[in-house]
Amino acid sequence: MNLHIHSILLQAFVSEYAVHGNDAGNGNLLAALAEGGFLIGLEKNSDVVAMASYAPLFVNANDRWWTPDAIVFNSAQLYGTPSYWVQQFFRESSGATLLNATLLTNSSSSIVASAISWEDSENAKSFLRIKVVNLRSNSVNLKVSVDGLGPNSIKLSGSTKTQLTSSNLKDENSFTEPNKVVPSLTLLENAAKDMDVVISPYSFTSFDLLRESVAMKMEGADSFSRSSI
C-alpha cells in the first residue's frame, strides 16, 4: 500500500478587525497603536494571512452606532481617525518581500517591528521599510540590523522617517482638529542597513530606506522570499 501525503497551503482572511471599547474612545491613538502591532503580526505571518480588512470603514457623525470607525463624515466635512492613518503604513505591504530584521533593545516586550522590501514602480525606486510600534511611555534606543543586504546597499540620501504619535494616548481627531493625530514625515540622516535609532514614546514609526540598484542576497531563509499581506 502506498501512502501519499499532500501539503495544503491555507490562506486566511482576517476580516473586520478593530480595537474598540471604553479605552478606544471614538478612535484614539491607543487603539491605533494596538491595531498597528496587530497588523505587523499579520504581516510577519503573511505566508498564511492573505488579506485583512478594518471595519467599520465609514460612519456618519449624526448616526453613530459603533465606535471606532476609520473615516468620520457629516454633510460638509470628513476626517480620518488614527486607525485610518495606521493603515497608510501598510499600503505597500501587498506583494512586498518580508525580510529578516534583528532589533537589539532592552525593551523587546514593548516593541513590535517588521521589515519589508518594496518597489516604487512610479519612480523606479526600491525601498527597505522598517516599521516599529513602541507601546512604552518612554523613548527606546533601537539598533536595527537587516539580513541579506550588502554594506553599501542603502543610499546616503533620499530616505525618510514617518511617525504617528501625540502627546496623549487618548488623543483623537475631530471636525475641529482633523489633523491632531496624523503621520509626520522627515528626511532621515545617516540611513544604513545597520543603524541606531530612537523611537518616540507611544508611537508608530516607519523608516523608508532608499536602496542602491543592486540585487539583494537571498540566503535561503523562507522569510526572504515570502510575500507580505
Rank of each mutant, 00 (worst) to 15 (best):
S110A: 09
G80I: 01
M51N: 08
F13N: 11
W66I: 04
P151W: 05
T176D: 14
S110L: 07
P68L: 10
N60K: 12
A113N: 13
N62G: 15
S167M: 03
V140R: 02
K131A: 13
D120R: 12
M216W: 12
A221P: 01
Q87Y: 08
A12Q: 05
G27Q: 01
S166T: 02
P82H: 08
N141K: 08
L78F: 10
K161D: 00
S83M: 09
G150N: 04
F127C: 02
S139P: 01
S167C: 00
A50F: 02
T165R: 13
S225M: 14
L185E: 13
S114I: 01
S109D: 15
L33H: 11
G41V: 00
S126H: 15
A124I: 01
G150P: 02
W65V: 00
S107D: 14
G36Y: 05
L164T: 03
T102P: 01
R129V: 00
V49Y: 08
R91N: 15
T81H: 11
L128V: 04
N26C: 12
S53R: 14
V214D: 12
V86Y: 01
R64W: 14
W85I: 05
S15T: 15
D23C: 03
K131P: 02
I111S: 14
E219G: 11
V144T: 07
A18N: 15
A31Y: 11
N141W: 00
V133T: 04
T102W: 07
S94D: 12
A12D: 08
L39W: 04
N173F: 03
G41M: 07
A55D: 11
L149R: 07
A215V: 14
V133P: 00
E219F: 10
T165A: 06
S7M: 01
P201V: 06
G158H: 12
T176M: 11
R129C: 09
D23K: 13
S7K: 09
G220N: 11
V86L: 08
N138G: 06
A115G: 05
